[in-house]
Simulated scan of single mutants.
Amino acid sequence: MSEEIVFYTNPMSRGRIVRWMLEEVGQPYRTEVLDYGTTMKAPAYLAINPMGKVPAIRHRGVTVTECAAICACLADAFPQAGLAPALDDPARGTYLRWMFFAAGPMEAAVTAKSLGWQAPPERQGMVGYGNFDQMVDALETAIEAGPFILGERFSAADVYVGSQIGWGLQFKTLPERPTFAAYAARIQARPAAVRAAELDNALVPNPA
């Protein structure tokens, strides 16, 4: 069972979330950069992730995909980094609540709106997020007390939720509320976030 962390990514993907998490964890890892449509869909990588998508990690003989799952697994695997409440800590409920909210209702609502689809009012009970505005209002409650989702304590939930908020502001898929802007600026200034961005930016191909 290998202790090495292998990180499969592309610098223009959600792999940026996992890169940041790895930098927060502070453990050595090896990066495997895959290309869209070629190595990402090749048999060797499909054996790792049948979806043919990045990111993924391989650690201790286990493959983990899905950004929220990777962040949660890394936080639990390296408790010394202090990025997740312990199992007996009541704060763990809040931590998991918003991690799963961002991976579920938030992403679904943002994707649906970006594609021009919204459930009609009489059918909104069928979708987990209700409607886009409800999701945004709920998301704001996670960070409005601040400075982090767990109050004064930064956690892996901030890496994942914060990345989603940062991208939402960058690509205009979330409204530019002052609460979101202040939170994104605060967490993106962390040394690990800055290092991760520099590493990924260096891998982005220069335009011909």
Rank of each mutant, 00 (worst) to 15 (best):
M1L: 13
E4T: 14
I5C: 01
Y8E: 06
G15R: 03
Y29C: 06
Y29L: 01
Y29E: 04
R30I: 07
T31Q: 06
L34Q: 04
L34E: 01
M40C: 01
P43C: 01
A47T: 06
P50W: 04
K53G: 08
A56L: 03
E66T: 03
A68L: 00
L74M: 08
A84C: 08
A86W: 06
D89R: 03
D89Q: 09
Y95Q: 05
M99N: 08
A102I: 03
A102V: 04
G104I: 09
G104N: 10
P105Q: 06
P105D: 14
A108Q: 08
L115F: 08
G116F: 09
P120F: 09
P121T: 13
Q124R: 15
G125A: 13
M126Q: 11
M126L: 15
G128C: 13
N131M: 12
D133F: 13
A138E: 15
A142Y: 04
E144S: 12
E152H: 00
R153Y: 02
R153N: 13
S155H: 11
A156D: 02
A156L: 14
D158K: 11
S163F: 14
Q164T: 15
G166R: 10
F171Y: 15
L174G: 02
L174P: 01
R177C: 00
T179Q: 12
F180C: 06
F180M: 12
A182S: 13
A193G: 13
R195V: 13
L199A: 15
L199R: 12
D200R: 11
A202N: 07
V204F: 04
